[in-house]
Amino acid sequence: MTGSTPAAGIVVLLAFAPGCAGGDEPPAQGIAELGTGEWQFEPLADGQEVELAHGAQGGWHLWTSVRTLGLEPEGVLLEVTTTVIDDPASATTSRGRIKLTEREDGRCEFIGWPAVLGEPACAIGQPLRIRAVVTDARGAVASGERLVRPRWDSDEACARRPQGAQDVD
């Protein structure tokens, strides 16, 4: 994959609510839409293939972006967990503080979060659950998940997969 091609990501949950911050009272739960994008937001559907990106430190990840409704844009904690469905031990979580950018349509977004995979060769072609939890400084939470299938053009072997085993098409 080249740096000029947006990498794949994930869609989690989408609904409609008034505005980015919602109103005077903190909402019990906000709304999150997780999609692809290193440079721009692109939604994905359950079951869609997503391309893995090679990280600067040698790891592999899926570029993800998030849009929210009902959350304040400052002091936001983003937590993204990737898990191969048939291998719960594969769960890998990355988290960090982000600042959401307000959009003209009332939603907020963050572009370009690297959702890490612990052993990417074992995820190729397998159903992968991406779960995102977004919490603002007031404690309002938005979360959701999507099932995707990672794609990667590499001959690297999965250490846990027996020699000669095939990826699922």
Rank of each mutant, 00 (worst) to 15 (best):
V133C: 06
L34Q: 14
Q166P: 04
E74Y: 14
G70Y: 00
A53W: 04
L117Y: 04
L52N: 01
L34T: 13
G70A: 11
T68W: 03
E33M: 13
R129Y: 05
P162Q: 11
T81H: 04
T2Y: 09
L52H: 05
E49Q: 13
G96L: 06
A21F: 11
Q57T: 11
V50S: 02
R146E: 14
G23N: 15
R67E: 09
R160T: 12
W63T: 01
G30F: 05
Q29H: 15
I98Y: 00
R149H: 11
Q29P: 13
D24K: 15
K99M: 13
E33I: 08
T5P: 04
G144I: 01
Q126C: 00
P6K: 01
W39Y: 10
P43Q: 15
I130G: 00
A142L: 09
P127K: 02
A89H: 08
T93S: 01
L14V: 13
L117H: 02
D24Q: 14
W60F: 10
H54K: 15
D169P: 08
E33T: 10
P120L: 04
R131N: 06
Q57L: 08
I10S: 02
A132D: 03
E104A: 09
I98W: 03
D136M: 07
A123W: 02
C108D: 06
Q29N: 15
P150Y: 00
P6Y: 01
L77Y: 01
L44I: 15
V148D: 04
V50H: 00
I31Y: 07
P18E: 12
C108H: 01
G19V: 09
L44E: 13
G3K: 09
P6Q: 04
G118L: 08
A142V: 09
I85M: 11
A132R: 00
P18W: 05
G144Y: 00
G22K: 06
A121T: 02
L77R: 08
P162L: 13
T2L: 10
P6D: 07
S94H: 05
V116E: 06
H54A: 15
F16A: 13
